[in-house]
Design a protein around this nucleic acid. Sequence first.
DNA 1: TTCAAATATGTTACATTATAACGTATTTTG
DNA 2: CAAAATACGTTATAATGTAACATATTTGAA
Lengths: 163, 163
Amino acid sequence: MAGTSFAERTETRLDNAERLCAAHGSRLTDLRRQVLGLVLEAARPVGAYDLLDGLRADKKGAAPPTVYRALDFLLEEGLIHKIERLSAFVGCTHALDGSHTEAGHPHAAQFLICTGCGQVTELDDHGILHALIDATRHIGFTVRHSTVEAEGLCAACRDVATA
Amino acid sequence: MAGTSFAERTETRLDNAERLCAAHGSRLTDLRRQVLGLVLEAARPVGAYDLLDGLRADKKGAAPPTVYRALDFLLEEGLIHKIERLSAFVGCTHALDGSHTEAGHPHAAQFLICTGCGQVTELDDHGILHALIDATRHIGFTVRHSTVEAEGLCAACRDVATA
DNA sequence: TTCAAATATGTTACATTATAACGTATTTTG
DNA sequence: CAAAATACGTTATAATGTAACATATTTGAA
Ligand SMILES: [Zn+2]
Ligand SMILES: [Zn+2]
Ligand SMILES: [Zn+2]
Ligand SMILES: [Zn+2]
């Protein structure tokens, strides 16, 4: 049995994830659950090789494909997002926290990356998405997937900076 | 003297770039000009190692730092953009084509990546930028730099697909 | 002009991120 | 149960990006 044990809140979110997978007819295996748990426990976006280190505490022989395959699955299920600018991964708050019974499967989101504290905030702002769709429709481009990432300072870090 | 020779249109854009640099008090050296030329001649986003291959046709001993340093300079001058999802680089149409005398230095832009033909279109849409600023202001986040990239099908490729 | 400082480039080595390819194990389905 | 599909193990390597330090070139002031 997988030795890793997570905080209660994480277990709750993992259970939510498991329900979403079941509803899609896909399987949140022990390994995938463990990788998702490691992503959720991190306060900030985690790189694949950090996850690999975490996995190795439990499964000695883990190798890159182990973690990348799990990440691919979690991305396809919409349980995590990849922050392109950081080559790192975060849990999808929309899918894991909300009571959104329609969640799961990738969705358009926006990410605010604070260069002060490293925290990433997920937005799900329709205005941004609409502005993008509007601008692209003009020139006949059909959007299938969008990446919106902003770097800057969160409220807390800005207050520190201007103090 | 650098042997690489570019199409006339590229030379024109390189001359524009040189003027912009001069106006900033920075220098578009032979090497940087050559790398920018290679970016501009490519019909699509180019990876750093493709550029390195191109450079090596002319300068036998070129190494990764050679091209990465040139790219860093060109990014800082706002002459090229990096497409994060592709780890690849494109010329900035705003800076190089327009008669925008205020151009140069990085600016917020949006990129449409066609998965059919690989072409990338640069937008400079105020609506998208504004929607992003609006959404972030609400939560006290200050945007310093934004990445907006959409993957999908351009008009031409969509027509082929539905034919 | 001459020399010191700043800037740009050369060069070697390495770090980080990601995937290919193939074999084994487990789960599902008829 | 047996066949097929899915998931995982394992080894090797590809692709992208930097650190560190030496050399060369340009700039600017004495
Ligand atoms: Zn999400
Ligand atoms: Zn912060
Ligand atoms: Zn641009
Ligand atoms: Zn196309």
